[in-house]
Structures are given as C-alpha cells and as structure tokens.
Design a binder for these strands. Sequence first.
DNA 1: TTAGGGTTAG
Length: 420
Amino acid sequence: MQSLGFYRLDQATLTTILSACDRPELGFVNKMVHCLAVLNGFQREISVGNALITSYFKCGFSSSGMQVFYEMLERNVITWTAIISGLVQSELYRDSLRKFVEMTNGLVEPNSLTYLSSLMACSGLQALREGCQIHGRLWKLGLQSDFCIESALMDMYSKCGSMGDALQIFESAVQLDEVSMTVILVGFAQNGFEEEARHFFVKMLEAGAEIDPNMVSAILGVFGVDTSLGLGQQIHSLVIKRSFGSNPFVGNGLINMYSKCGDLEDSIKVFSRMPCMNSVSWNSMIAAFARHGDGSRALHLYEEMRLIDPEMGKYAAEQLILSAPEKPSPYILLANIYSSKGRWKERAKTIKRMKEMCVAKETGISWIEIENNLHSFAVEDKMHPQAEIIYGVLAGLYWHMIDEGYVLDKRYILSYVNQD
DNA sequence: TTAGGGTTAG
C-alpha cells in the first residue's frame, strides 16, 4: 500500500479501493485513501465523497462519514442514501430519519433505496406513524411492490407491533423469499405469537418453500418449555440434511431448543460436535446446565470458558444467578469478572446483591482468585484449622478492602498464604 | 475499472 502514493491515482481507482473497505479492521485504509484523495485533489468529487461516506460508516467511523457529508459541495440522491443508510447501520435511527426529512425538504428526490433505508430507521425506532407515511408515499409512487421494499415494510410493521399489517403484505406479495419468511417468523416470535410462528414454519415447509439457515435459527428461537420435541427433531434432521450445522446461529439455536424442551443430553451432543463454537454457544450450554439444575457442570464449563476470556462469562453468570438466586457462587464468579477488569463499582454492586439474596446459611464462605484459579474457603473445607482461620480472615479482609475502593495486589495474599 | 439496499442467536 505504501507505493500507492507514488502513482497518479484517478477517482475510479480510489472509489474501487474504498468499496473494498467494508470492515472495521480496514478503517485505516479508509483514512489513507481519504488522504490520497485530498493530495490528488479529488476530495470534492461527488463519487469519491459518496464512496468515502459509505466506507467510513461500514468501518464504524460515523463521525468521519458525517464530516465528509458536511464538507461536500454537491450532493445527489446517492449521497443522501449513503448517509441515511450509514446512520441506520450505526443504529443512529433518529439522525437517519432527520436526514430523510431534510432531504425531502430539499430538491433531491428519494428513490426506492432511500425509502428502504428510511424504513429500516422506522423499524429501529418503532416509529409506526413515520413508517406509514413512507408506505403511503411508496404506494403513490408505485414502488411498494419491489421485493426488498416489501420485506422492509413487513419488518417495519412487525417491529412496530402491527403483525396484521405485516401479514397482509406477506400474503399479497408477488415474490416471497427466505428473507420475508424470516421477517414474519421473527415478528411472530418478538410479538409473543410463538404458536403462530411454529404453525407458519410448518405451513412453509409443507408448501415446499426454500428454507435457509436464518429461517431455521429464527424458528428454533420460539421453542419453549411447553413445546413438544417432535418439531424440533424434525428441524434438526433438516439441518443435517441441508448441512446447516456450520452456521453458528443454527447450532446455538439447537442447543437452546433441546435444553428448553427438556432434552439436556441432545443439547450436550450438539454443543460437543459444533464446528463453530463461540461465546454465545458456550453461554447457551452453561445456561442449559443451569436450567436443568446441574450447577456443578455449569460451573465447570464456566471455569473453562473463563480461562479463554473472563468477559465472555458475564451472561453465563447472570443465567446461573437466575437459576439459583440463593446460591452465592455465581455472584462471586460475576464479581471476579468485574475484579479482573478493574470494575470495582460493578463488583461491589454484585456483592451487595449477593448479600441481599443469600442469607445467613452460607455466610461462612469466602472466595479468592489466585493466579487465575478460583479458591473457596468454606467452613466445611478440610483444611488445617489454623490455615482455615488465616485464609478466612485474609480473604474477608481482601474483599472488604476492595469493596471500600482500595486496589490491592494479590501477591500480598499469596505471601501470607505461603507462611502457613 | 467509479458511489447507495431487505431478515438473523445466549
């Protein structure tokens, strides 16, 4: 890349490079190309500006994208669409809709891609009124039957809680695909119509519709304790037949589905054979053990995961607490995650929560983390009586001081322990 | 060989 500066670059080359910068890791390339554009005098070219806005937002540099937008001398429908969709990608939905209004007040006419991005902003804001207004405009312009627009409209209505409207569009749609089917499934699930979601999925299956991994992960999400395992197993066979197992969303959905339907063993099977493990699948498996009252296996897996990344265990610890709010160990685990990150305030809050929830029964327990291992010092532990007292007092003192806001070095504790 | 797009987990 260093040699780029020696060439006389044209704007086509710059925009081509920018179109490849679509991930946060490539943000620095973006900055560099921006500099090159300035050096070559292209920074005011509309195509370069538009490409810069798009790539900056894709890399997560929203303020740089906004700056390019404001510095542009000339803006066309692509400029406006790039800024509206960029703000949606950054979840700045309100700013996105403001830009849409600003655009429509000006002289630039939106097109179907602009409306599409604006509908996404309405979905994010659950802004039904604005969404309906856009629907009305699309109707007048005759753009409402574009299949991308249709699925965006369905998503907007379902996110705003109007499943009836979403279904109406679905039923009268000219072209149906896996995206619109997923939109409806997710809509049913998020609006609490789980039975309808399963019914809808079966209907699509029987109609011979093209099923994709996203649809499968969406339907797996609506399985609950009241659901029979039959449909879940049927979906699992489909996953195997169609080789969807490498999709992490699908694998994770299967773990949850089995554990929620009471089949812990199959949860474990899916988890252990997963080619695509990530923090979510670990957390799902821990939550599955916790759900089935197998605290020791949950904690064991939790410890394993925590060695990889302490932060990964935050969700799992919360789940463990929910499954057994009166047991102190998950609170301690969560507190230790906060300690390892130096987040003393959150740690103190967790300890306070534990003290409120776990009464007298287990107050004798103390926990301490030494060299990445969690040690517990409880009354029932078989230790030298003197060691027990020293450990208990030291551990208590240690955490008390941290709760008071002191930052202590663990080596102090170790040196005392070694004296024993 | 030039710029904008729909769904998605614990």
